[in-house]
Design a protein around this nucleic acid. Structure first.
Lengths: 159, 159
DNA sequence: CAGTCATAGTTAGGTAGCCTAACAGTTAGG
DNA sequence: CCTAACTGTTAGGCTACCTAACTATGACTG
């Protein structure tokens, strides 16, 4: 406790505990799924399309390119294509040709997709909120304080 | 900030942020995989066998029953059986008849399994520690403080 | 001491989501 | 032009889940 700097072993222990927590959280996330709703992967992709497609930039063409989707989601391009096709078949997203580059494809979320992700998110958030409500204020505060940190850790991947 | 109690909307917002963090963490966990090492699911099961099988209780028979494994991992029994068979074929676990109940099966981790999970865990922990090392002390402290809370949340599932 | 009912695990068949390798079309540069 | 680089799709394969159906054992009850 009186070390001048955090010993490697401390960081290693934290890494182990954090990994353990994430490992268990995988099952928690799975539990939130259920029903004939959207899958977690579909929500991830649709949410990404919402955030990136019509984001601040207001760039030239609408939608997101397949390669960019894959990069954002941390999967390979064929996996992204597969998901996109499923979403398209379900009427939740659309594929359009890129006016500037005939090789490229622009993917956009549809109105139905918007609504679906909203609904699925709301339900999951409510379930999670139910769990969080059983915690103490202190616990919730500690969790809230850590979320930006976890965000930083996750951002490491993008690099 | 001066509410008498946390408003529902606050908890809902926290739930949303937490889910978001977990959603992204899925991809982080995937990145830690790699190689011809054990899969994440295999590590989870082996670690469970280590913790539960020879745990404090020192109960009568050694090993863990399939149903208990499934419950602990949050999967259905057939999924557990499938994993167990794979681990057995890889020489990482053993199945033995339960002396007290001929219907039941006792699953135990093998020496090789012990070594394998150790190795895989060490490597992953090292990678994660590398990421954590780039954070500030304050960030690491915040993360450490939240881990028990996340543990509580995860424990909710067991119920 | 059957006869039924519950419990433990396996088997069979199906789905989602990811991967690599091979392919087709488009653009860009020598 | 013509080759090289890039974008996305297709093909084939894997892991890890699931439900439903089955086998075998245990446990309870008339």
């Amino acid at each position: 406790m009186t070390d001048e700097h955090p010993a490697d072993t401390d960081i290693l222990a934290l890494a182990q505990d954090f990994r353990e927590a994430l490992r268990h959280s995988v099952y928690l996330v799975r539990r939130l799924d259920a029903d004939g709703e959207l899958t977690a992967a579909q929500i991830s992709m649709l949410k990404m399309l919402m955030d990136t497609g019509s984001a601040s930039g207001g760039s030239a063409a609408p939608g997101v390119r397949v390669g960019e989707i894959a990069r954002n989601l941390g999967v390979k391009v064929p996996s992204a294509t597969e998901q996109i096709i499923k979403l398209e078949r379900a009427g939740l997203a659309r594929r359009e040709p890129d006016p500037d580059d005939s090789r490229a494809v622009r993917v956009r979320i549809s109105e139905a997709g918007y609504a679906a992700v909203e609904a699925a998110n709301d339900r999951r958030n409510a379930v999670m909120a139910g769990i969080l409500a059983s915690l103490s204020d202190a616990d919730r505060t500690a969790l809230a304080a850590a979320l930006p940190v976890i965000g930083k850790i996750n951002a490491t991947l993008q690099a």
